[in-house]
Design a protein around this nucleic acid. Sequence first.
DNA 1: TAGTGAGGTTCCGTTACTTCA
DNA 2: ACTGAAGTAACGGAACCTCAC
Length: 287
Amino acid sequence: MRIRLDSKDSGSPNMGLSIGGGGRDEEKDEVRVSVDRPIQLDLLPFAPVPRSQVSSSSSSQMGLQWLNNGNSERGFDVNRPPEEAVEESSPSAGSSFPMEFSFTAAAAAADGEAAEAARASSRASDEDEMGSTRKKLRLSKEQSAFLEESFKEHNTLNPKQKLVLAKQLNLRPRQVEVWFQNRRARTKLKQTEVDCEYLKRCCETLTEENRRLQKELQELRALKTTHPYYMQFPATTLTMCPSCERVATSTTSSAAAAAPPAGAPPQAKPLFDAFKTRQPNNKSTAS
DNA sequence: TAGTGAGGTTCCGTTACTTCA
DNA sequence: ACTGAAGTAACGGAACCTCAC
């Protein structure tokens, strides 16, 4: 079984919870349940672009001035095999990274950043020389931060955007592509965790509510047994649930507005009051 | 107009590597 | 120095979409 938490409509207060099997085809069979959800993890500050629009948009739509500022300076030779740097127009080793967003200072302030880049570069070159079967290279903090900022703008990339980003970061386009894939996966995972937590709380609340209603029902039954003439409301009135305020009909009774009969047990007073105060609300909740 | 294959993309599960306690 | 856990880059395959024919 597979539970799918559809959070694509990030702007919507509703959450689509779907339960189905695995695989894309099986998504057709998923059962969707809408739940009011006040929680929306703000991992994606934008609505994901439909696939049909993803590859058709141009790089000029990215809205990232740091991508279009014409600054070709790049300080990252990290993870970049020399033969793959063909797309670079002006490789300037050792130059500063053109970061123009707010976290630049924080990222730059991180100690050992240059050393880290150097280490990564060293690793990259070492592994290239070793010819390892699988290259696993750590992105530098700056590269990660840059990608992160880009992800905030668009969580998917069209080919142009991918190329531009790769160029900016001195990475292979495939690396950028993979990073975005993994980033989307992480976002989804976190959102799923948040959704699960919310559903868990919903479940707990409903369980508690159910327990309370059961208890209330028990008390009402006991009341009916011990005081058979108490709460002799018309049937139309008694069909209303005091807790959920739902009634079978909209008929109200003047008896409901009456004070509790004299001699009613003390524990019945709160129930009666609750019942009485909820009476006016039953006008539209009948179904 | 419907069918089909190619090319490209995303998603998903998994693997392999790195870092850190 | 060794080890296990966590994080994450990278991979392969399946599904899907678009487009040309």
